[in-house]
Design a protein around this nucleic acid. Structure first.
Length: 254
DNA sequence: GTTCTAGAAC
DNA sequence: GTTCTAGAAC
């Protein structure tokens, strides 16, 4: 059993992430370039599942929800913890090294939309300290690498940054192309979370962390999500989401 | 974070 | 009447 491996008790219904107090460096094989998937990790995971499955006896428990902490409140299994599960899934991993992993956003809001996540568990921006500076900088470098290897990097603009108040737990850096051409972009909150100051540029966050040892989010950031819809290219106000999507076609033809 | 849908807006 | 938004989800 290695740090970061997953243990599925009862038919994948209750994923557990094994963590150690001291994460020995180099526990994850590093590679500088994005790759398809890690076959060795998949093997290891299968082994872990097999071992656990063998220990199970005949009495198969029923997947019925009771009022316990398993699927209520904000514990494991809650939707807000979904990134922790996704980042461990080799099928979702687009790149990984000893410090971070990159996955595709499950509901991409543009033609290209990745998330860079540290292996180290950092619940939110509030938990960031000066000692995370190197990690944050590395996340930014990996984000830049993702853009470099994108086939449309020359024709599309990209931004990399953090949501001021993310819905999902575990610090994650968005790498998103600026076409916003996606059926998953559906409402004002989606739009404003990437096109207003709700979106904190990676570089700005790093500078804040370096200067203050903390990241502070302006109060009232959540109000930014309610701003009128405005085109991020020509600054034109657009009345509705469908009209905005139609408008974007003029800036980003297929 | 998403889905669903009541009722506001047109 | 249809389109679209915005709030609940136990």
């Amino acid at each position: 059993m290695k740090p970061g491996q997953q243990l599925h008790v009862v038919n994948q219904l209750y994923p557990y992430t094994v963590q150690f107090k001291e994460d020995p460096t180099g526990s994850h094989g590093g590679s500088k370039r994005p790759r398809e998937s890690a076959s060795e990790d998949r093997e290891n995971q299968r082994e872990a599942q097999k071992t656990k499955a063998a220990k199970q006896t005949e009495k198969v428990s029923v997947p019925v929800s009771h009022g316990d902490a398993t699927n209520t409140s904000e514990g494991v299994g809650h939707w807000s913890q979904g990134l922790k599960t996704s980042m461990q899934d080799p099928k979702m991993q687009v790149y990984k090294d000893d410090k971070v992993v990159v996955i595709k956003d499950k509901y991409p809001k543009a033609r290209y939309h990745w998330l860079v996540l540290p292996w180290q568990s950092i619940p939110s921006l509030k938990a960031l300290r000066e000692e995370h500076c190197d990690l944050v900088k590395h996340m930014q470098q990996v984000a830049d690498q993702m853009v470099e290897q994108c086939p449309d990097a020359s024709s599309l603009r990209f931004r990399t940054g953090y949501h001021a108040i993310p819905s999902m737990s575990h610090v994650h850096l968005h790498v998103i192309s600026q076409d916003f051409d996606s059926p998953c972009l559906k409402n004002k909150k989606h739009w404003n979370s990437f096109t207003t100051d709700y979106f904190i540029e990676s570089h700005d966050l790093f500078q804040m962390l370096e200067a203050n040892g903390r990241v502070t989010v302006k109060e009232g950031a959540s109000e930014l999500l309610k701003l009128p819809l405005r085109c991020h290219v020509c600054r034109k106000d657009i009345p509705t989401i469908p009209a905005l999507k139609e408008h974007l076609k003029s800036h980003f033809p297929r």
